[in-house]
Design a protein around this nucleic acid. Structure first.
Lengths: 196, 196, 196, 196
DNA sequence: GATGAATGAGACTTCATTCAT
DNA sequence: GATGAATGAAGTCTCATTCAT
């Protein structure tokens, strides 16, 4: 039975929820402290600033996705279609489990012009995600097309999450995922396609 | 002879730029004042609060899109495909002209959980946009499918704008628009099997 | 038919009402302008500052009381008791006609330590009032006692007006006035009172 | 070993002095902070707003009077006259010790039309005071008359404090108290004619 | 390690006052 | 004389951060 003692990991996990829900600027250190059952001052034993806490949260989340989600794309025991389905299932579960959308997407829009340090990390996250998708599509499609599909898929998912949250309607994300699967099932663009 | 003094419209236009770039919470009234060549206090001659200024900005932008963009979808002198192309061209020009993405999308994520008043207005904006897209698709596709396509198109565009801004790469939006056009050219799902 | 045109007198009269109701510090120039049907800036054609406007209001009210109220105390065609009754009747009517108590009393408490210029004028007002009461009592009582009664009467009336306003109960003032009349009807303190 | 740090009680006591002297609206949080040896922001650790601080001050003062002053009226080991004398002595000492009059009276006039929340509390204070006076008078006078005397006494004291402060002359309050004692020594109005 | 008092910069907002029109 | 835009100082309040206990 693990003791639920306060430590950096616990603070990160609680912060993640608060940041994802309220955004970076609207979240106060007091909000986070409350979510952790601490007082404001205590947070500074673990993180030297709000910004460094946010950075830790970003990295935690990025690592989580790398291990739990993107890694599936490189599990060569599975077929491409299986992998795609798996990625979609896992991330759908993630985004459904919180009502607050995607922290990385939220951050992308909120801090791109105010906290460039975050942008770099958020870009890396999305790059990894697009690479994973590209890798899957590349098993069936030419690389250039696979890249397009990877980029487009991630963008479509993020757009869908935005609309899902705004309208409180999960159908947006479900639909986006279905469309991605359909695209995978399309015939690749053949570069040479003039048969009788 | 044009009036010289600052007026509400000018403040709205300047605010739009600042809000779109920095977000709502990170933009101070001093930022806006500077962008308008005024001092903080002077803004309160025109808007009684930061929130009411933001509301005016939202409404201004919504009206602009209604008149200049969405209206094209209902111009029955044009064919559906022409209309779709027109919508895409106009909004692409809009989103390219600012480096800051889409204010409505930014707001959607930033304020959905902190300023519900804005969310309502942002929702109306996206609903109008989706309706316009749906109206175009409905000329070729069954209504249910047209609705899906309308929702998906708007979501995809917003996702693409997010990525475009983050990666500073217009290709995301261009690609999203191309995909929408391709979808329009697809064969509709036939709801009726064509047996004798 | 006198034209109700804006002039200093009109502004003074409107200001009096607003100041009496809201107090000096809580009344803004915009409040006064609205009560006069003007805009803020226009007030400065008539008074160079809020303080000078307040001063004019004090002087106006002081003059009004001198002429319409205190003067009765020196109308030697009337008997002392008649004069007292008259003073009471007139001032009761004044204080009943507004729901906002006594401007001078309000000012006395609100600005005594923040705007000494007002205090001096307010003191003169109350001094004139006490002198008038003293003058009446002096027709029946020895001067020292008359002075006491004059001071006490004015104080009691002001206290009653305070309570009247707070509790919205005119009985306080009515009762204070009755008590003053009773005091007048008492036998004077005889300085030599050792009769068998 | 007494705690060293500032605490809410200390802030309340310092605030009381400042509010009583300058009034509610003219007192800034910076004024209070200075009186407490703090900076503005620090006050908000103890009170969430200026209004809630003022409320705490009112309640503190009300409780003080209930325990230290009004309670004397209900100490049935004393005779009515003794009690009256005691009440007067204690409150006289209070009002002499500050040069700023009576906070409750000041507030009554300043905030009756601008901060209704305060008015309610101020009314309760004066009601308790009048009840205490009434209780004493009722030991000698019929209840209706005792009520009148109670109301009138409190009103007269407040009026006297106003004049005392304005003219910087303690004689006003001394005189008011003497008059109250004299009234107590009067013969009650007999409600029953004493015929056989 | 945890507290919570204290800080000080900066946010939104109000308002008396000025001045060009 | 009247306007209302503009000012700038000052007010209330928030918050990331520090630090003695």
């Amino acid at each position: 039975m693990p003791k639920q003692k306060t430590n950096a990991k616990f603070i990160i996990k609680q912060s993640l929820k608060v940041f994802r829900n309220k955004g970076y600027h609207s979240t106060s250190m007091a909000d986070i402290a409350k979510a952790c059952g601490l007082l404001k001052g205590s947070l500074y034993h673990y993180f030297k600033s709000k910004e460094s806490l946010m950075t830790a949260v970003i990295e935690h989340l990025h690592n989580f996705y790398k291990k739990e989600v993107f890694a599936q794309a490189y599990d060569e025991e599975l077929g491409a279609k299986q992998k795609l389905q798996l990625l979609i299932d896992i991330s759908e579960r993630q985004f459904f489990s919180s009502e607050s959308g995607c922290l990385m997407g939220n951050l992308a829009l909120e801090t791109v012009s105010t906290v460039p340090e975050f942008s770099e990390k958020v870009k890396q996250f999305f790059q990894d995600w697009m690479d994973a998708m590209t890798h899957i599509f590349a098993e069936k499609f030419p690389l250039a097309q696979a890249k397009q599909l990877g980029r487009e898929s991630v963008a479509a998912i993020e757009g869908a999450i935005m609309m899902m949250r705004l309208f409180n309607d999960r159908q947006f994300l479900i639909q986006a995922h279905q469309t991605i699967l359909q695209k995978f099932n399309q015939t690749p663009l053949s570069t040479t396609n003039n048969n009788p």
